[in-house]
C-alpha cells in the first residue's frame, strides 16, 4: 500500500471495511468488491487462457498451464494420486489466496486476506471437508487419527486429548498464519511509507533522510511479493497435508 501521507501515520486505516458502491440501495463493501475482482481475474486467466488450446501457448495460456501444473504437482506430492479428487478445491483456494494477496500489493487496493474472518472461512471449509470426507471414507476408523500408536495405556487419554486440541488448532493456525502475514506485511509497508511522507513534510535537514525508508519500502514490496506467493503455496500445501490425513488416517 502506498503512503497516503497526511502527516500522521494510520497504518490500520487500510483495513477498514466500508461501502464501496451501492447496488440498488444495497451497499457493497470494498472487501466484497475485491472478492468479485479476484473471481473475475481468476476466471479470466483460466477461461480465456484455455479457450484457444493452442499447441504453442499464448502468455495467458501458459499462465493457466503453469498454475495448473504447479498445484497438481503439489497435490500429487503431498496427498498422492488419490488426493487429485480434491484438486478443484485446492486449486480454487490457491488461486483465490494468491490473487487476493497479489491484488492487495497494488496501491489503493484492499487486501481481502488481511481479515481473519475471510481466512478462517477458507480454513473452516478445508477442515470441514477433511472431517466429512474422513468419516465418509473411513467411518469410525477416522478417529484413529487421534490415537497415537505404541503408547502405554496410562498416557493414552492425555495424549488423545492433546491430539484433539492439536487437530482443533489446525484451522486456527491455518487462518492465523495467512491473516497475520498479510496484516503484518501491509502495516510494515504503510509505516515505512509514512516515514517517507513525514520526513519530506518536516521541512528541515531531515528531508535528506527520506530516501532511506523509501529504499526500505521498495525492498519490503519485493519481500511482500514473495510472501504473497509463499503464503498461497503454504495454504495449498497444508490443505493437501490435512486432506491426506482424511484419506489415510492413522499414524
Amino acid at each position: 500500500m502506498a503512503a497516503e501521507g497526511e502527516g500522521a501515520i494510520d497504518p490500520i486505516h487500510q483495513f477498514v471495511i466500508a461501502p464501496f458502491f451501492h447496488v440498488g440501495g444495497l451497499p457493497v463493501s470494498n472487501s466484497a468488491t475485491f472478492m468479485i475482482v479476484i473471481l473475475i481475474v481468476a476466471s479470466f486467466i483460466m477461461i480465456v487462457g484455455t479457450a484457444q488450446k493452442a499447441l504453442v501457448p499464448s502468455r495467458l495460456q501458459s499462465l493457466g498451464e503453469v498454475a495448473y501444473e504447479f498445484v497438481a504437482d503439489t497435490v500429487r506430492s503431498s496427498a498422492g494420486q488419490e488426493g487429485m479428487k480434491f484438486f478443484p478445491l485446492v486449486f480454487s483456494l490457491f488461486m483465490f489466496v494468491l490473487i487476493a494477496n497479489l491484488i492487495g500489493l497494488i496501491p489503493y487496493t484492499f487486501t481481502v486476506t488481511s481479515h481473519i474472518i475471510i481466512t478462517f472461512a477458507l480454513a473452516a471449509l478445508v477442515i470441514s471437508t477433511v472431517i466429512l470426507y474422513g468419516f465418509y471414507k473411513n467411518g469410525v476408523h477416522f478417529l484413529n487419527l487421534f490415537v497415537p500408536s505404541g503408547v502405554s495405556p496410562v498416557l493414552l487419554p492425555l495424549l488423545v486429548l492433546i491430539e484433539v486440541i492439536s487437530f482443533v488448532s489446525r484451522p486456527i493456525s491455518l487462518s492465523v498464519r495467512l491473516f497475520a502475514n498479510m496484516l503484518a506485511g501491509h502495516i510494515t509497508l504503510k509505516v515505512f511509507g509514512g516515514f517517507v511522507a513525514m520526513l519530506l513534510a518536516s521541512g528541515t535537514w531531515a528531508v535528506i533522510l527520506a530516501p532511506l525508508p523509501f529504499a526500505m519500502t521498495v525492498a519490503l514490496t519485493a519481500l511482500e511479493l514473495l510472501v504473497a506467493f509463499l503464503q498461497a503455496y503454504v495454504f495449498a500445501i497444508l490443505t493437501c497435508v490435512y486432506l491426506n490425513d482424511a484419506i489415510h488416517p492413522g499414524h
Binding site: 488448532s169 493456525s173 491455518l174 492465523v176 498464519r177 497475520a180 502475514n181 525492498a219 519485493a222 519481500l223 511479493l225 514473495l226 510472501v227 509463499l230 503464503q231 503454504v234
Partner: peptide, 19 residues
C-alpha cells in the same frame, strides 16, 4: 525475488509461531 532465503525462513518462522 529479493531476499528469497529470508522470505522462506520468515515463512517457516511464521508457521511455527502460528502452530
Amino acid at each position: 525475488a529479493v531476499g528469497g532465503e529470508t522470505g522462506k525462513a520468515m515463512a517457516l518462522g511464521f508457521r511455527m509461531l502460528a502452530e
